[in-house]
Deep mutational scan, measured.
Amino acid sequence: MASQGTKRSYEQMETDGERQNATEIRASVGKMIGGIGRFYIQMCTELKLSDYEGRLIQNSLTIERMVLSAFDERRNKYLEEHPSAGKDPKKTGGPIYRRVNGKWMRELILYDKEEIRRIWRQANNGDDATAGLTHMMIWHSNLNDATYQRTRALVRTGMDPRMCSLMQGSTLPRRSGAAGAAVKGVGTMVMELVRMIKRGINDRNFWRGENGRKTRIAYERMCNILKGKFQTAAQKAMMDQVRESRNPGNAEFEDLTFLARSALILRGSVAHKSCLPACVYGPAVASGYDFEREGYSLVGIDPFRLLQNSQVYSLIRPNENPAHKSQLVWMACHSAAFEDLRVLSFIKGTKVLPRGKLSTRGVQIASNENMETMESSTLELRSRYWAIRTRSGGNTNQQRASAGQISIQPTFSVQRNLPFDRTTIMAAFNGNTEGRTSDMRTEIIRMMESARPEDVSFQGRGVFELSDEKAASPIVPSFDMSNEGSYFFGDNAEEYDN
């Protein structure tokens, strides 16, 4: 783990906690998980779902989305002020799938948001429990990260689609708070800032007046979040320049895209947490497990152990491969979309394939898809080993990566060399080191050039047997250095459309 220093740990961010010791953190995270579980059980009762239907990941996603929508204050306010045809701002819903006479049927349900809020609060001892809501947002974000390569979004903001390893959390809503900021990748933060800068260039009043003052505060806050992700002084200094700019424009845009590229080699610290679907927490609570009393951590053995003992089902389209669908969801559960496939294969105990080789589309089923041909199958979400999630980018030494994705962002704290394609990355730096950030740029390029592919990161860190909950005997895996390590390699994943 990167030293926490003055930073709060993510469990504290996750639970809005002030400084807590490890036991208190485990208890408050457990409380959050228990609340999600209780809410899910109650919703299944309301909807009269069978046990099997309640364990269907598509039903879980609909129920999670309903509660997130019920608590989305800004959108609710907007919907009330701008009524649109056929949208009731006070209601929320989605597809629920039921097994009827041996076939899967889709039923569109509609609930009062007020009623959903009441059920959620009741499951969370009367609190709004925003930490639990954020947790579900991060699960949705991790699922998107594993399912889609955001080529269009990258290109629109002047970045290269091969930089997708920097895009963790790119679909997280803005209201996801400190826990959300911690899991956002460098590219995601750059993209958010670039969008602001572009608006400022096109709209003279963007930075002016009372609204402009708020915009400015948001801009500086985002700059500080991004600065905190960088691990070298030169990158941090460049972020200070971007933040202090009187009138952010093209120079800042250039600096930010430069920094994003540099992060492929001088990786930023991005938190990883295993956020599971509500249909995993519900049955665990129903079986009598007391998360608050037992304590829970999002970055240790607990999620692995929970998945070892969970039964989750998914709808499967006619030509999809259930094992591939399982891999997709497994990666999402562990926030591992940008991790090295060699490491993932070792931990999972079966070969993890790149996205383009998977015969599976996303987990969600569109409303126009034919239910007649839908089957369902068990998702295999178990693992051979477990490993500690990392909050750091690993040290800054790398190795060759593949054509589709030119770097990785480690999820697990496991000893290995970190793949990246130096030639491709360095070719993108057209040696432009003039301007006010020239000395920093020169320094950053120097550090990137001296990074050695064969150097090892996370020295001495290994994986653990599932029986080793105290992480007492690390097993340090050895990897084939020459092997392909990137998930979005030469990829044809669908595009994420909101």
Rank of each mutant, 00 (worst) to 15 (best):
Y281W: 02
S314C: 13
L154E: 02
G37P: 03
A70M: 06
Q149D: 04
E220L: 11
E18F: 04
G5V: 06
G295Y: 05
P322Q: 11
E254Q: 12
E320H: 02
E53I: 01
I301H: 15
L49K: 01
R243G: 08
V329R: 00
G300I: 03
V299N: 08
L154R: 04
R204V: 02
R26Q: 05
P410I: 02
M66I: 13
C275Q: 02
D302R: 09
V67Q: 09
Y487T: 02
T433R: 10
M440G: 04
E53N: 05
P354Y: 01
T232R: 14
G94Y: 06
A178Q: 10
R213A: 02
G393A: 14
R452C: 14
F412K: 03
N101W: 08
I217R: 07
N483H: 11
K227N: 11
F39M: 09
L259N: 03
V343K: 03
M374R: 08
A493H: 13
G295N: 09
E220I: 10
Y496N: 11
V186E: 06
E81I: 14
N417Y: 13
G435C: 07
G102P: 06
W330E: 01
I225T: 14
R55T: 08
N321V: 10
L47R: 02
A153I: 04
L276Y: 09
F304Q: 09
A472T: 15
E24D: 13
V414Q: 08
G126A: 15
E495R: 10
V100R: 10
M447V: 09
H324M: 04
T424D: 01
V456M: 15
R446A: 14
S3I: 00
D72T: 02
Y296Q: 02
N21G: 14
I425V: 14
A451C: 03
F338N: 09
K113C: 09
D88T: 00
G462S: 01
N59P: 04
L79P: 08
R243P: 01
G30S: 10
R452K: 14
Q409H: 11
M66E: 08
D480S: 04
P354A: 13
I33P: 06
R293P: 00
Q311H: 04
E465K: 13
G30V: 11
R441N: 06
N417M: 00
T424W: 10
A233S: 05
A237S: 14
F458K: 01
Q168I: 06
K273W: 03
F338C: 15
V329P: 00
Q311V: 15
I96C: 14
I33D: 05
G431H: 03
R26K: 15
M371K: 13
C44P: 00
R216C: 14
S262V: 03
R150Y: 14
E81R: 00
A233P: 15
F420C: 15
G460L: 05
E114M: 06
I109V: 14
Y487I: 06
W386P: 00
L418P: 07
I365A: 06
I63F: 15
A70F: 03
D491H: 12
G282K: 04
E24K: 04
S274T: 15
A123P: 05
P474H: 06
E14M: 06
T157E: 00
S407M: 04
S413D: 05
V312M: 15
R162D: 06
A403V: 04
M447R: 02
L256N: 02
M43H: 01
R150F: 04
M66L: 14
A129R: 09
S69E: 05
M32P: 03
F412E: 03
S482T: 13
W104P: 01
P318E: 05
L133F: 06
G404F: 00
G158H: 12
H135E: 01
K7A: 00
G132K: 03
P419N: 00
K214D: 01
W120I: 04
S310V: 14
D160L: 01
L381V: 13
A131R: 00
S413G: 13
L154I: 14
R389M: 11
S326K: 02
T257L: 04
I41P: 00
R446F: 13
A271L: 00
G54E: 14
